[in-house]
Write a protein that binds this DNA or RNA. Structure first.
Lengths: 219, 219
DNA sequence: AATCTTTATGTTGTGCACAACCTTGATGCG
DNA sequence: CGCATCAAGGTTGTGCACAACATAAAGATT
């Protein structure tokens, strides 16, 4: 029961694994993913794996070229800026479109994220920060019942996650951790007040600030 | 040069063809699509066709069940309502996020759509109306340079297109045609004034009205 | 008659072999 | 030496055969 292991489940697992590797820069932009090697690693054949790569290509994380290889995409700064613009707007919509009522459980979850964030303050680590950010993002989208909004937000998140991560490497890790923790703090405050729109606005604001920080790197 | 016919192009052609058939109700909800039959029709094998079906499944237009078949989805009214909510918001964003400057060519295109719409007034036809609506939608999304916004809007459009079409069949075709033409008229006015935001608001408003008209059918 | 079992049939999922294609390096020629 | 040509190796794309699975009908059993 803990492992249904039907075709769909295996597909989702594979997809999630590769997507995480790409977004955590285990496979940096420009890397070539070998279908055969990956198939061997995951104990399957090329056929199911190709379906996963096709989805990743549809999501804009890789491109496959006949006779060349499947290459992890590098991101165009201009397009990324526009994608961030949209992410910012969608973050605000989470508070307005079919928001879920804020329960004690949700507040507790937010408190849990804050605790994990604060633990990172004393021992900053890029990878842990990225993972926490990823989990916290999913928590944020879970605050709307609008499935389409959740889906689009996640699609865009995974497309921009790497940018923030590479930028963090060039900015100051301790600073970025502190900023993220303050977002968690603001978010928890809003949720404690049972104000979902305020929580969404917190996220919206921090995306705006994140855009600004990343943009200065381009100058 | 007019037909590159490499793998990617064939894939896109197949995908577009099947998506159009589904959204024009050539394949009504509940239909079973045979991989073998479709492969034969398009002169290919199951392998490339399965990739197309996988994308359609990712887009929510079909579901594949092992041992059963690939079935055209029927849409849950509640989820559709929420999807429409999001579409409405995205339509407004087209006017704000990276809008393209309104050129004479754009105004001329809008005038062309209006002309085609008016031609439908004298001889209403569901299928022609649906096709025109589809083309006009793509015209609408082309008014932003934000690729992600275009992509998400289209994704959601194709997920809801069938709802509007089935609703039109139960509403009055002549009425719906008239309403659509009035939207084209309002849109043309806004574009003539070189006001892209106003044009986006026209679309936004009409989506709202469309939601209201479809909703009365549920009572 | 009702119900369980079995079997036949059709469907999607998987693995593998080969085709199509690109890149790279060697080789020959000017 | 420069450059074109070609051959070799590796990669993704395609076709096909078979496995895994679900369904429905036929048959056996109670």
């Amino acid at each position: 029961m803990s492992e249904p292991s039907d075709a769909r489940t295996r597909f989702l697992r594979l997809h999630d694994a590769l997507r995480t590797r790409i977004c955590l820069l285990d496979y940096p932009p420009g890397s070539r993913l070998s279908e055969e090697a990956l198939a061997a690693e995951f104990g399957t054949s090329r056929t199911p794996l190709r379906r996963v790569l096709a989805k990743l290509e549809d999501e804009g994380l890789v491109v496959s070229q006949h006779g060349v290889g499947t290459i992890v995409t590098d991101v165009d700064p201009g397009e990324m800026a526009r994608t961030y613009d949209l992410r910012r707007e969608l973050a605000g919509l989470v508070g307005r479109l079919s928001p879920v009522p804020i329960t004690d459980q949700i507040v507790a979850d937010a408190a849990g994220f804050l605790k994990r964030g604060e633990a990172l303050l004393t021992r900053p680590d890029t990878r842990s920060l990225a993972r926490l950010n990823m989990e916290y993002f999913h928590f944020g989208t879970s605050l709307t019942r609008n499935e389409a909004l959740r889906e689009m937000s996640e699609r865009l998140y995974y497309r921009t996650a790497r940018i923030w991560l590479t930028a963090t490497a060039r900015l100051d890790l301790a600073d970025e951790t502190a900023i993220f923790v303050s977002e968690l703090r603001d978010s928890l405050q809003a949720l404690k007040a049972r104000d979902g729109q305020a929580a969404a606005d917190v996220r919206r604001t921090h995306i705006s600030l994140c855009i600004a920080r990343v943009n200065v790197l381009r100058d």
